[in-house]
Design a protein around this nucleic acid. Structure first.
Lengths: 149, 149
DNA sequence: TGCCTTAAGTTCAATATTGAACCATCTATC
DNA sequence: GATAGATGGTTCAATATTGAACTTAAGGCA
């Protein structure tokens, strides 16, 4: 066996991610980057009030990277960083109205941009969604147990 | 409608890509990065002899980025950069035996590492593969036509 | 209380990626 | 042939990401 189908799948995923990322970033008029949008989207969908460290873990990203991304979002007025009343070390990432609006606009842009592709592909993406969700969950579970190189 | 299923799919893809990338890079004993592996894999699968600019286009990456990645691969002895006899400006990226061996080892590592996940998921990934290939192709076709922000 | 370990967040140095600018060479058209 | 425009590849400055180290504060336990 040369390639497992899982390897082939990850291959496709890597290419698609790269295509989608550059497409998204080139399309934003204000230079909103994909990590920034991803954080906004996360806050809208899962709620705000969590701290940077928790977000960093959720996105599998270093704490300094999250600090940086949050600074950019705060500069743009899309989030507030409130002190955590329960923990003097901690901060709470709060979505602002502008942040919610910017996220919604980005989602609209994505849907508009993808509309031709979506009609061309039909229901195939919806059919593939459960498999990918299962894969994502499995990889997420397996985070700690990696094969030694 | 808030999220199209295509948007949801890209969401999953982004998370999976991030998980798979860090998992791969943490697992390599010699610090081989994912872009370096991806280029090696490309050379094995599609053949060598192409130039850096062509590779940069294939990976949707800037020419300087490809120059950098190829420099790393050449330092490691995994590729050679020969002059293009047909074009004095050009170079030809040639895979070495060490490069092929390193790629094969990485593929083996991936398959080993993914084996538990693969058995857990069963045939679902294979079933999702055609849909992703179609999506990849559609995005690739649509590269030039982006929605204005 | 006092001490030790752990977690939150930032700073810092090193590396990666990008867009713009640049030189050398090829190609098309006159 | 000559010249204008396009292409291959690199250098450079700016920004992003990372791991290590550091500061501050919680939490556990004697």
């Amino acid at each position: 066996m040369t390639d497992s189908s899982l390897f082939a799948l990850l291959n496709e995923i890597g290419i698609i991610e790269q295509l989608a990322r550059t497409r998204f970033e080139r399309g934003q008029p204000d230079g909103l980057r994909l990590p920034q949008f991803t954080v906004l989207n996360h806050l809208v969908r899962l709620g705000d009030g969590r701290g940077p460290a928790q977000l960093a873990r959720a996105f599998q990203v270093g704490k300094p990277t999250m600090t940086h991304t949050l600074q950019r979002l705060e500069e743009r007025g899309f989030i507030r960083l409130d002190p955590d009343p329960a923990d003097a070390r901690g901060k709470r990432v709060m979505l602002t109205e502008a942040g919610r609006a910017r996220r919604d606009a980005a989602v609209r842009w994505i849907n508009d941009d993808l509309a031709p592709v979506a009609t061309h592909l039909g229901m195939a993406p919806a059919a593939a969604l459960p498999a990918l969700a299962a894969l994502r969950e499995a990889l997420d579970q397996a985070r700690d147990s990696a094969t030694p190189g």
